[in-house]
Nucleic acid binder design. Structure first.
Lengths: 230, 230
DNA sequence: ACGCGCTTGTGAACGGTTGCACAAAGTCGT
DNA sequence: ACGACTTTGTGCAACCGTTCACAAGCGCGT
């Protein structure tokens, strides 16, 4: 976004990168998980129809999504599971291990720390940090909790590129600022606040209450419709 | 915008309200939270500009979103905070208290059970359920854990309309089926699986690993771009 | 009372996403 | 070897969502 194509489009090595659409990127992890599940059942190939159904999307959408990565299917047969896993992982940048720092070790933080999905895929928790001095030193999920003051040090030494915020809402913006100050440019925020960040920093929010309220809207709508037809 | 409904639009009972777009619905909770935060600082009115910035969106988008609910602003002044809270809450169906059943009381389940955001807004945890008999009877966040077998009973007696799944992935589909069987039509799924449900049932997924992978994609892209320009 | 400045609400243009429908391309059985 | 069958990859059209730009409306100061 910052370094736009300066004059000649020759800076791009091979223009094979047709810029994967954001909506597609958001679905790739779902496909990847479905593929892993299929692999465990022993399947070696899948049709777009079968994979789409396992991922909860339409088959045309799936095929179009995959076509943005390249042409890795075989007509008349389908996709080879392992090959697809490889290519999707590559597109998502999971070839390398990303170091993650987790800030805030309450119940949610512990749930995240204990979550198996980290090590399996390409993520490694570099450190658990908490502002509460009484908690520092406790061991959670096999790791000692360290002080929030060690943030810069951790980010530098462990080459952390992703920060996860699982603090109370009041602390989130401050922690965010510290993360950005330390050089972290990707943040996953579980605190119920909208974080203000400079350009070039990506933030993704996960908010339980939001999701419940969206469900509430649909329940409400269903209930109102039912009332009308009654 | 209401007057010129020439002919057909006026007598269609079902299409009474102009159907709030899904993308807008997803943002309403964010606005609501920002408004509550503003209310606590003593503000009684906000401009679309100020509220938009607090919510992390553009002001035009905010105004268009709000316009789907009605015309509740005052030109030259802005929106009255309390009034907007009232109308957004109404649109989201938060006027009534929804009963929620939480299945799976591991670390994540405990984090959710202890989350303040439930009681504050219009949600009430009707029961905590877990399949592990050894856990049944334990008290978490002031509530006793009950057996998963009591699901039907709980849903019926407590008029539960929303189910939250915080179990391991393996158990999620089974729990989902039970919830649907008991009559629950809105499900919030924290387990890393895509649930298969019949039509008429809404499912929202929250998946930590997905979010991390999306961040990974962007980090990867940034890193690749930086490499090229170097 | 009246114009001035501010802010909302919205029509219209734009860009991205979805779904359809089908040609291209492969496999399998005979 | 070949035709029937299957499934991918994609052009196209409809749809949805975002952004721009501005007229309409409101309060305030004079």
């Amino acid at each position: 976004m910052s370094a736009q194509a300066s004059g000649p489009a020759a800076d791009v090595p091979r223009a094979r990168r047709a810029e994967v659409p954001e909506a597609t990127v958001a679905r790739l992890p779902v496909y990847l998980r479905a593929l892993h599940a299929l692999a465990e059942t022993g399947r070696t190939t899948v049709s777009s129809e079968a994979l789409a159904s396992a991922a909860g999307v339409g088959s045309a959408k799936l095929r179009k999504d995959l076509s943005h990565l390249g042409s890795y299917g075989t007509r008349g047969v389908g996709y080879e599971v392992q090959e697809l896993v490889f290519h999707i992982s590559g597109a998502l940048g999971l070839g390398q291990r990303w170091s993650v720092v987790l800030v805030g070790v309450g119940h949610l933080g512990q749930a995240l720390a204990g979550y198996g999905g980290f090590d399996d895929r390409g993520f490694r928790i570099a450190a658990l940090l908490d502002a509460d001095a009484a908690r520092v030193g406790d061991v959670v999920a096999g790791m000692p909790i360290r002080s929030l003051d060690e943030l810069d040090e951790v980010v530098r030494e462990e080459d952390v590129s992703i920060g996860v915020i699982a603090t109370p809402a009041e602390a989130a913006q401050d922690v965010c600022d510290r993360l950005v100050g330390a050089g972290v440019r990707s943040i996953l925020n579980f605190a119920p606040t909208v974080l203000q960040v400079p350009d070039g920093v990506d933030v993704r929010r996960v908010d339980l209450s939001n999701e419940l309220q969206i469900l509430s809207f649909h329940e409400h709508r269903k209930a109102t419709l039912a009332e009308v037809s009654a």
